[in-house]
Design a protein around this nucleic acid. Structure first.
Lengths: 205, 205, 205, 205
DNA sequence: CATGAATGAGACTTCATTCAT
DNA sequence: TATGAATGAAGTCTCATTCAT
């Protein structure tokens, strides 16, 4: 490794501070939207001046990048574990939803940002991985639903793509109102959500 | 008609052009987000120069205001009709959801904007009516759900506030992917959604 | 005169309307300052739309031009009469001051505009006549004062240029507070001003 | 010194630069009028780009505000000292006029701006203090004149309000032609002005 | 004569970013 | 590592002016 390592991605020697700063930034992004957030607001929240952030990060965009990509990385670790476990369709859905709520609990800000910003972001080459993730996501859920329909676990009379969007959105929008440390633990929320998604809110006749 | 009638809103005499321009603006806002949209982009889409928009509107914000308020006005006309009809809880939910999808069909852009922006907007005095609407909304849905639980139509073992959010989000996020003129008519989508919300996606044992 | 007389200075056929409009414009210019006044404000005050003013005038600047030049023309008619009358220095000063207050009474707005704007305007070729007028003005007053000092009518121990500015400003700033139709007739104000300028406000020992 | 101390006014830690910039701005405002002055002109005069001014000031208006308010603050320090000294009416007038010319000498630009702009400014809430100052001003001068008339020092045959305006304007318009560092020191100009105001320009019979 | 709509230049302001210290 | 000051691009908005009707 040459002595002149250039600037940014600065020093991995102090990853603590980076993570703190990213968490701060994520919070502000989630609260106000990425575009509406100024670098100065992030710096204020972090107790430094706007220019000082550039010692740690290349740009505002690269903060967003790092927030989203590290969230997705962690999310897929969980998902891949579930998908590799060889569970039945219903159990897979249950595990994915539970995993999702755990992720919302851990990375609420990142999830909220993802929800709000991913659409415009996919145009930028730098954020192509968002679309990739989206595709893997769709494949995993759609596949599971199809397996369930084929196996007689899920209703066959539903439009499968509609059902996919229904389940997907139903889970992730929760990030917009979820507050970590609230009344419900993520697993409890997952359980209730699953109950509604799988069995509906109407009383069975 | 008196000669002195300035104020803003230019002249209500030619509401044609206004509506056209607002529709254009709504489309761009929905696609890129309010903040990320420049006045010039709207003007481009409308085939005029940026400054020319200010003949018709006071500000970018007032375009947003008019888009959202006229959407909510129309929405509540539909809702109020439903709520005044004296239906049972289940039928009320069905009617509200159907009405919502019709509204998404008619005002897709406005709904998408509402979803994405209403949170930050409620801080501005000008947009207080968003919070008001939100409250009426919550009251209508929560009340109906409670009535349903009391009447044994909806399951009593669910967290009622969670169920409210579930139903509410379930419906409105659809605006983020719905395309008017697509395969499904809004009433058909509503039917499918209701089927999932009420009876779940799992096969009944 | 050719049949195609081009546009502006439109028709001298309706000089009534022009004068009305110029009076309106002068009032607004005086109240808000030339730069701070928008063409639309003038149009509002005149009960028409901004664009319509351009049937009567070439530009906002040409309105100002016409206001100032017609004021100066009238002013100099009065002044020239006084200066040609062959009065003594003190009587000349008295007549000029009285004439000035009459002018303030008739053209308050124009005078106020002149006071506030003439400085920046002299740079523009179109308004060179303002500087010309200024010079004639200075010559007339300075000359009279000098004659008076030489004749032993005015005190010889005063800086003559300072005295000139003193008298000049003393008279014209009155336009900034004078309201036509108030308690005092212009001749009465002139008398009082002259009393102060000539004899001072202190009681004679 | 706490690290979090944002607000506007940037940092009061480097008042040097601020004062420099305000002096530059005042000069340009005085020369061209507030409205006619562009932020870019100020920046040019200060050797920076237009946007850079906003590191130091909130807005063009806040520059004007700071210029005027700090001028008035200083002015009233001088006036209050005079008014508290318990001088006779004539000596008070003399001291106030002298103090005014000193202030014109120190803050020529600010005074010129005050003269030209204060009228429109008083409408803005932010500049209400201008009207307050105006009132105190009037009270101080009118009171002194009345005292003088009562004490037989000033002529009783004059309209007292007219005399007030006369003295007031007479002094302050000097800012429009006064050039610091010219032939006359402010005290000398004050002496001559007082001589004219108190004793007139006519030779005593 | 006047209107309604648009133009286009330019204003004030914001903000991500840079860099010497 | 952080600060203070500046840059420069871009954004929203204003306004004098034009012109077909």
């Amino acid at each position: 490794m040459s002595a002149t390592k250039k600037k940014s991605q600065a020093n991995a020697a102090a990853p603590e501070r980076r993570r703190e700063l990213l968490e701060t930034a994520a919070e502000v992004f989630a609260a106000q939207g990425y575009n509406a957030t100024t670098v100065r607001q992030i710096a204020d929240a972090a107790g430094m001046l706007a220019g000082s952030l550039y010692y740690h990060f290349d740009s505002k965009e690269s903060m967003l990048d790092e927030i989203l990509s590290s969230f997705l990385t962690e999310l897929w670790e969980g998902y891949d574990t579930v998908l590799a476990a060889g569970l039945g369709p219903r159990e897979t859905i249950e595990a994915l939803v539970t995993e999702s709520f755990r992720e919302i609990d851990r990375h609420r800000a990142a999830v909220a940002i993802y929800q709000k910003e991913s659409r415009h972001l996919t145009d930028l080459p730098r954020f192509h991985y968002l679309a990739d993730s989206q595709r893997r996501f769709e494949k995993a859920w759609l596949g599971t639903l199809e397996r369930g329909v084929a196996g007689g676990v899920f209703r066959a009379d539903l439009d499968i793509r509609l059902a996919y969007r229904f389940v997907r959105d139903t889970v992730w929008v929760a990030a917009s109102w979820y507050r970590p440390g609230g009344r419900h633990r993520p697993e409890e929320i997952a359980r209730q959500y699953l109950s509604m998604v799988l069995d509906g809110i109407a009383v069975r006749p």
